[in-house]
Design a protein around this nucleic acid. Structure first.
Length: 348
DNA sequence: AACGGTTGCAACCGCTCGCTT
DNA sequence: AAAGCGAGCGGTTGCAACCGT
């Protein structure tokens, strides 16, 4: 049994919104609110639009205080660091940037930011091989060279990570927290209370699902998750799992594997960018989380134990600038796990 | 001026989640 | 417990504007 369509597709208008439609929708919502039922709303106000379309139009364009374009460097850094932390959770990232929509940030990431990251990479690549490859061609070429099962003709945003370890899918919130933690670990993050080995060698970490994540990973200290340049070099590493499913090790190997030839430059570029931006990111996060709690690897992290749960991102210290409206838009618990990061490129 | 390629962004599509019945 | 349904999310597409030749 298929899913019932949300509206009569043959009887709804598609495409760009006219100023009249905008005015009708805006006037109604400003006067009456959405009524909690987007599906019924267009009928109520005589719009030949799908309810989902109305919702999107309102959220991405018509609602008050929306800003478009012109992302600042600080916003860049926030987007970058949050993407590193939680992946393509655009709505969560958007919640940190007042006036920005998830769609905007997604577009920004998929166009400008990727270009920014790849700009230097492309230059380097072009110097080394046949010229005249466009960005799209290059991305297509890369995705063709390194195909991912189930990802046909998709651009791989992050051809960077080591193969995911095989471990049971998280079935509880605690499991999810563990997954997040493990995921961040593989990005080179460190956690207070971690096995000392992990601290000294970010490529050699321990996964301990029996340790309550919430008790030991405060978000205030989450700058620990920012990867070091070296830890973002999984191309030089292999990942193995101990048979009990609780411990993983990442072993350095000599040089990039054949699989990643051609991507090492991009990877290095990203690492370099992120690493060189770390200070700026820290600066940005000082406003976020308070300077006392920002850890840059050389400073403390000692206050970690008494703080909020990592799993509940809403309990984190959000920037003061998040408006009440944005705050109300924030989701409850983002269910982040290393398993649902479709943009990550997991080499086979 | 004309044309082809590229970019940026609005909008659509399909899926998952969570609530209700 | 299971099915139905709406909301919300992320990925993708379509197209107008822009740019270079």
């Amino acid at each position: 049994m298929g899913r019932a369509p949300c509206c009569d597709k043959s009887n709804v208008k598609k495409g760009p919104w006219s100023p009249e439609e905008d005015a009708t929708l805006k006037a109604y919502i400003e006067a009456n609110g959405t009524g909690g039922n987007w599906i019924a709303l267009p009928k109520k106000i005589g719009l030949k639009r799908c309810g989902k379309s109305c919702r999107l139009r309102w959220l991405n364009y018509l609602r008050p205080n929306i800003r478009h374009g012109g992302f600042s460097e600080e916003e860049d850094n926030i987007i970058c660091s949050l993407y590193i932390s939680i992946g393509s959770r655009w709505s969560i990232i958007a919640a940190q940037l007042p006036g920005r929509t998830d769609n905007d940030i997604k577009n920004y990431w998929n166009t400008k930011f990727k270009k920014k990251l790849l700009g230097k990479h492309r230059k380097d690549q072009q110097a080394r091989r046949a010229p005249c490859l466009t960005f799209k061609h290059e991305m297509k070429r890369e995705s063709e060279n390194y195909p991912v099962p189930g990802m046909v003709n998709q651009v791989s945003h992050w051809p960077l990570l080591p193969p995911p370890p095989v471990m049971p899918l998280p079935t509880t919130h605690q499991d999810t927290q563990d997954s997040v933690r493990n995921f961040l670990f593989k990005l080179g993050g460190r956690f207070s209370g971690d096995h000392p080995q992990s601290t000294t060698n970010p490529m050699n970490f321990r996964y301990a699902p029996d340790v309550p994540f919430a008790q030991e990973q405060p978000y205030e200290n989450s700058m620990n998750i920012l990867p070091s340049a070296s830890s973002l070099s999984p191309l030089n590493s292999t990942c193995s799992q101990v048979t009990d499913g609780t411990q993983f090790t990442v072993n350095d190997v000599d040089g990039p594997s054949d699989m990643f030839q051609g991507l090492d430059g991009l990877q290095a570029e990203l690492s370099e960018l992120i690493y060189s931006n770390n200070q700026q990111i820290f600066d940005g996060f000082e406003g976020f989380y308070g300077t006392d709690n920002v850890v840059d690897g050389s400073s403390t992290g000692s206050s970690s134990v008494e703080s909020s749960s990592w799993g509940d991102i809403n309990s984190l210290s959000y920037p003061q600038t998040v408006s009440g409206f944005e705050a109300s838009q924030q989701q409850s618990i983002p269910q982040v796990s290393i398993y649902d990061e479709p943009n990550y490129f997991w080499p086979q």
